[in-house]
Design a binder for these strands. Structure first.
Length: 387
DNA sequence: ATAACATTAAACACGT
DNA sequence: AACGTGTTTAATGTTA
C-alpha cells in the first residue's frame, strides 16, 4: 500500500467537464466553482507520483508475482482511491528496487525508488494517474511504517471551511463504491462515504444527496443491483460501478486531478481508495497491455442517461474488450512522461501506456533513485527528446 | 453557436 | 404519516 510508479508517455487530454451551475435566478442554491480552471498540462513534463493503496492480495495471487502476466486483473485493483487515508510521508523516500528483465508489454520490472522529492504531488491524488495497464514489479518487503508515513498538513494550511471537492458526483459515487469492500453500496452508504471523505458535504445543503441519487439513476456508469432479501438491511438497492464504464470514470478522475493538482486545499485528503477485483474483472489475464490502455483511454461511451435494467446480484459479466475500435491518442507522442510508482501490498507495479517501449536504458533510468528521476530531462529524453 | 456534460431543484411513485 | 429511495423532468452553467 505504498507507492506506485507509472510511466505515462502521452497526452493529457483536456477534460470536457461541465462546471457546476452558478446560482440560479430562481434562488436555488447552486454552487459556483471558480477554481475550475483547466491547467491542461499540455507541455511535456515529468512527474513522480507517490501514493498509497490498500489490499492487493487477491491480485497478487492470481499469478506469480514475477510472471509477466501477473498484473492486476482490472484497472481498479491498482487504483488507490481513498481520500480519507493519510498520506504516508515515507513515500517520499520510498525505494524502487529493480530487477528483472525489462519488458514493456507484460514484462516484470524491478525498480527502485528512493527519496522522492517533497512536493505537493506526493500528497496529491496520485492514484488518478493510474492507467489501465499495470505491470507487476518485484515483490517488496512490506513497509511497516505507515504511522510515520503520514504527512499531515499543518493546520494553518488547512482551509477554514472545506472547499467543495472538484470531483463530479459521478466521481464521488465511483470512489465511494470502489472504496467499499463489496464494491457496492446503498445510497446511504454513498452519502456517508462522501461526507466522511469530503467534509464539505457535511455542511452542505442536503440538495447534493438528491444529486447523488439523480446521478445514480441517470448515469450508465452505475448499476443498481438487487439486494438479497434475506440479508437486506435498510431500504433501497445496492449500487455498483458498471465495469464497462470503469475506465471512463477513471479517466474523468484523472483529468479532474490534473485540473486541480495545484489546489492544495483540494488535496489535503489524499484519495487512496484501492479498487480490488470483486468478481468484476475488466480484463482477463491474457489481455495485452495495449488492450488495457485502450480500454482505459477510450471509454465505451459517455455518461448519458441510459439505465437499462436492474441487474441481478450474480450477473457480473466481463465486458468484451477489443482494441479495434480504439483510436490512437493524437497526443500520444507528445513526449509527456509520467512516472507512477505503485506498491500494492508487497508488490510493485509499473504502469505503462500500452504502446510504451521500454528498453534496458529506460529501465536503468527507472532504477535510479528518485533524485535522479527528478531529472526530468533524462526521462523526457526517453520520451523522444522532443521537449 | 452548439453539443455534451454537470449541477441543482423539484415532483412523483414506491417501499419500509 | 414520515421518511428514504429511485426515477424523471427541467433549468441553468461550463467547456470543448
Amino acid at each position: 500500500m505504498l507507492f506506485f510508479q507509472q510511466i505515462y508517455r502521452g497526452p493529457l487530454r483536456r477534460g470536457r467537464r461541465g462546471a457546476p451551475a452558478a446560482k440560479r435566478p430562481s434562488g436555488c442554491q447552486g454552487n459556483v466553482r471558480k477554481d475550475r480552471t483547466q491547467t491542461g498540462r499540455e507541455s511535456e513534463c515529468v512527474d513522480l507520483y507517490l501514493t498509497t493503496g490498500r489490499q492487493m492480495e487477491k491480485n497478487t495471487q492470481a499469478l506469480p508475482p514475477h510472471s509477466p502476466l501477473h498484473f492486476p486483473r482490472n484497472n481498479s485493483e491498482a487504483l488507490p482511491l481513498s481520500p480519507s487515508l493519510p498520506q504516508p510521508a515515507s513515500l517520499h523516500s520510498s525505494h524502487l528496487h529493480s530487477s528483472s528483465s525489462p519488458r514493456v508489454s507484460g514484462g516484470s520490472h524491478c525498480l527502485s525508488l528512493s527519496t522522492a522529492p517533497e512536493q505537493d504531488d506526493l500528497t496529491c491524488l496520485n492514484w488518478l494517474h493510474q492507467r489501465g495497464n499495470l505491470l507487476p514489479l518485484q515483490p517488496l518487503p512490506k513497509i511497516s511504517t505507515l504511522p510515520q508515513m503520514f504527512d499531515p498538513i499543518p493546520a494553518q494550511h488547512l482551509p477554514s471551511s472545506p472547499a467543495k471537492p472538484p470531483y463530479s458526483f459521478s466521481s464521488l459515487i465511483f470512489m465511494a463504491i470502489e472504496d467499499s469492500p463489496e464494491k457496492s453500496l446503498p445510497v446511504k452508504g454513498i452519502y456517508e462515504w462522501i461526507v466522511e471523505n469530503f467534509p464539505y458535504y457535511k455542511e452542505a445543503p442536503g440538495g447534493w444527496r438528491n444529486s447523488v441519487r439523480h446521478n445514480l439513476s441517470l448515469s450508465k456508469s452505475f448499476q443498481r443491483i438487487h439486494r438479497d432479501k434475506s440479508q437486506s438491511v435498510g431500504k433501497g438497492s445496492l449500487w455498483r460501478v458498471c465495469p464497462e464504464y470503469r475506465p471512463a470514470l477513471l479517466e474523468v478522475l484523472r483529468k479532474t486531478h490534473y485540473c486541480h493538482r495545484t489546489n492544495r486545499s483540494l488535496l489535503n485528503k489524499p484519495v487512496l481508495l484501492e479498487a480490488t477485483d470483486n468478481g468484476q474483472n475488466m480484463f482477463n489475464e491474457t489481455m495485452e497491455l495495449s488492450d488495457l490502455d485502450s480500454l482505459s483511454s477510450n471509454p465505451p461511451c459517455s455518461f448519458t442517461p441510459d439505465h437499462e435494467e436492474l441487474i441481478p446480484m450474480e450477473s457480473v459479466g466481463l465486458p468484451e474488450v477489443t482494441g479495434e475500435d480504439t483510436e490512437k491518442d493524437p497526443l500520444a507522442d507528445s513526449g509527456y512522461i509520467e512516472l507512477h510508482y505503485y506498491q500494492y501490498q508487497q508488490y510493485q507495479y509499473l504502469v505503462l501506456p500500452g504502446d510504451t517501449e521500454l528498453d534496458l536504458e529506460t529501465v536503468e533510468i527507472l532504477q535510479l533513485d528518485a533524485e535522479a528521476q527528478e531529472a526530468a530531462g533524462s526521462l523526457l529524453d526517453l520520451a523522444g527528446g522532443n521537449h
